[in-house]
Design a protein around this nucleic acid. Structure first.
Length: 278
DNA sequence: ACCCGCACCTGTAAGC
DNA sequence: TGCTTACAGGTGCGGG
């Protein structure tokens, strides 16, 4: 989610108030819902950029909405003009934007997604987007009140890591941030979520918030493959502060124990057996 | 009703 | 070099 927020902010800077002159759909399969140029915002003026959890939406001044989901490998890239940079491989859609006053130049925005786990969803109105797609999401991880978080997380008997990753419980926590939050809160990722005590649930909420806020501030995590950047091409730097993710076998930064790697909730999980007790 | 496990894709790196 | 395998930021569905 910090990566999605970085994309949201960069798009806000680059595209707010711009007019969509033309849409080119290169791979129709990435769009769910109407695939017409109009549904993909052709002719619209970009009015706001919204986010809920990991879901990003471009909302036009006339109310049309386009949701972009990045999945594992998706990205949004803006370049000064189509002539400026050739389309990179796996570019599935392209919007030619005509800027307004402060940024009058033409801009090209592209949706790129090699693995195609992400996609585009079109809606005639913001209400339709919220009703048909965002109601399935829990409250945003940055906004959920501590007591609400505690209640929702304790509503399942699955492992606490599974609860954190479940977007219908709380929206926005992915694999990196689940591991980092659980480490900071000193909780074993396999613990039954329903059995967290109130202080433990509060602690986890605090850790999740601190980790996510810090990661947002740092533009998210750009991993070793360098794939993720925001819409302006800037990398995140939060990976410098990962304390467990990607560090299996290395020493715990708190107690020096060897960090353990396993599979929890179907995902690679790294934790410290000494610091994160059952 | 709830939860697990796997399928969906492509790219990359490691192992042989 | 080149083939094979494992694994990667996330969902979404079938079936137990």
């Amino acid at each position: 989610m910090p990566e999605v927020e970085a994309v949201r902010r960069s798009l806000e800077r680059l595209t707010l108030g711009a007019r969509v002159a033309r849409v080119t759909l290169l791979r129709a399969g990435v769009v769910r819902g109407e695939r017409t140029p109009a549904a993909l915002l052709e002719g619209a003026t970009i009015g706001s950029l919204r986010r809920r959890g990991k879901h990003l939406a471009i909302v036009a001044e006339d109310g049309r909405a386009l949701e972009i989901h990045l999945g594992m490998s998706g990205s949004v890239a803006c370049v000064a003009s189509a002539a400026g940079a050739p389309r990179e491989k796996h570019t599935h859609a392209e919007w030619t934007l005509r800027g307004s006053d402060p940024r009058p130049t033409a801009l090209v925005m592209r949706f790129v997604d090699p693995r195609r786990f992400g996609g585009l969803w079109t809606f005639p109105t913001v209400q339709a987007l919220e009703r048909e797609r965002w109601t399935a999401l829990g409250p945003d991880a940055l906004e959920v009140a501590p007591e609400v978080f505690a209640d929702r997380v304790r509503g399942t008997r699955r492992a606490i890591k599974a609860a954190l990753l479940d977007q219908s419980i709380v929206a926005g926590v992915g694999n990196i941030y689940a591991d980092e939050s659980l480490f900071e809160a000193r909780l074993d990722p396999r613990r039954a979520s329903s059995r967290l005590t109130t202080p433990e649930a509060m602690r986890l909420h605090g850790s999740m918030l601190r980790i996510l806020h810090r990661a947002v501030e740092m533009g998210g995590s750009t991993l070793a493959d360098g794939t993720y950047t925001d819409a302006a091409g800037a990398s995140g730097v939060f990976q410098q502060e990962h304390r467990v993710y990607g560090r299996a076998g290395q020493a715990c930064m708190v107690c020096s124990d060897r960090l353990r790697r396993g599979v929890v909730a179907g995902r690679t999980t790294v934790w410290c057996r000494n610091c994160q007790r059952r």
